[in-house]
Simulated assay, not measured.
Amino acid sequence: MPRRLVKVTPAKLATWSDCPRRYRMAYLDRPAPKRGGPWASSTLGAVVHNALKGYFDLPQERRTEEQAADLVRRCWKSDGFRDAEQAEVYRDRAKQWVADYVRGLPPGMEPIGLERWVSTPTEKIVAEGRVDRIDLRDGELVIVDYKTGRHALGVDDARGSQALALYAIAARRTLRRPCRRVELHHLPSGEVAVWEHTEESLGRHLTRAEEAAEDLALAADTLAAGGDQDVLFPPSPGRQCSWCDFRRHCPEGQDAAPEVEPWATLAP
């Protein structure tokens, strides 16, 4: 019999790595446990992503800073914010971030992919996911990931990102072009973290992804056969438990870190 390939996304792999219990609740339990409410930082990130996609969907002659800022206004949601006043402050900040960002883009640039789904099979897994933006520069693909978090990111973040590495591997297979460069674009600071992968560094990321995929697939199969869910999917309590969507269902997580407000993870 051919070997069953495990289908994974960077989000699934990250969830498994962070906390097997959270992975079980998010992807295996049916019915799924009720999640917590929306986080303001997630809302903010989604608005910025949608506004930038809308910006590049416009014809070249309409791509202006004013249009970019207006797209933030049109995409805006206030889910997770403390109140209307706080939401208005961050809406204005996001408008400025996006306007400043598009001002610095090369004139006439045209991404080859926006919110593009890419996928690649290996001997053990099918790695897939949705990339914020894919550029074509000097005949090679470049993976661009937008960030709106509290802290600027550096070269180590770009180099160590399994998600970006898997996107690069999948993009070159999907779009049939070389892809080694990955970039993290942090809009609040305007900083860009860049890493140029080698075949060896991409291979290391892929090997780790395959090992994690085998572990999570084995745990899922054993659970389906009647295994103990707490043994197969133990919690990994830590400070991240403060903003876990499944905190209400996890006593260990509640003991590990205090509950925080939905707007606590916003960029200052």
Rank of each mutant, 00 (worst) to 15 (best):
D29G: 05
F56P: 09
A69D: 02
Y27C: 06
R35S: 09
E65A: 14
R30L: 10
L71C: 05
A51Y: 02
G36P: 02
A32D: 11
E65L: 11
L52K: 05
L58C: 10
P38D: 10
G36T: 07
A26Y: 05
D18Y: 09
S42F: 02
P31A: 09
A69Q: 05
R30H: 13
H49I: 00
G54R: 09
R24W: 14
L44D: 02
P33I: 08
R21P: 01
P20Q: 06
S17L: 14
A40P: 02
L28M: 10
R35G: 07
Y27Q: 07
V47L: 02
D18R: 15
L28V: 14
A40Y: 00
W16M: 04
T64S: 14
R63P: 11
L52H: 07
Y23A: 01
S41D: 04
P59M: 06
V47N: 01
L44H: 08
T15L: 11
A69S: 12
Y23I: 05
R35M: 09
R62M: 12
E65S: 12
S42P: 04
M25R: 10
P31C: 07
S17F: 14
A32T: 13
Q60W: 12
R35Q: 14
E61K: 15
T64C: 08
A68S: 09
R21H: 09
A68M: 05
P31I: 08
Y55I: 01
R21Y: 05
W39E: 03
W16V: 03
G37H: 10
L44T: 02
T43A: 01
W39G: 00
A32W: 11
T64G: 08
D57T: 12
K34P: 07
S17R: 15
D29N: 09
P20W: 02
V47M: 03
R63Q: 13
E65P: 10
G45L: 00
H49R: 01
M25S: 05
L58F: 07
D57P: 06
E65G: 15
S42C: 07
R30V: 11
G45P: 02
A26Q: 15
Q60C: 07
P59H: 12
Q60V: 13
P38C: 08
C19Q: 07
A26T: 15
R62A: 13
A68H: 06
V48K: 00
R63M: 07
P59L: 04
L71R: 06
V48G: 00
W16I: 03
Y23H: 11
E61Y: 13
Q67G: 06
T43S: 06
L58M: 12
Q67M: 12
Y55F: 15
P59A: 08
W16P: 04
P59N: 12
R22L: 04
A40G: 04
D29P: 03
E65I: 05
N50H: 13
S17K: 15
P31H: 13
D70T: 11
R24H: 15
P20L: 03
L44Q: 08
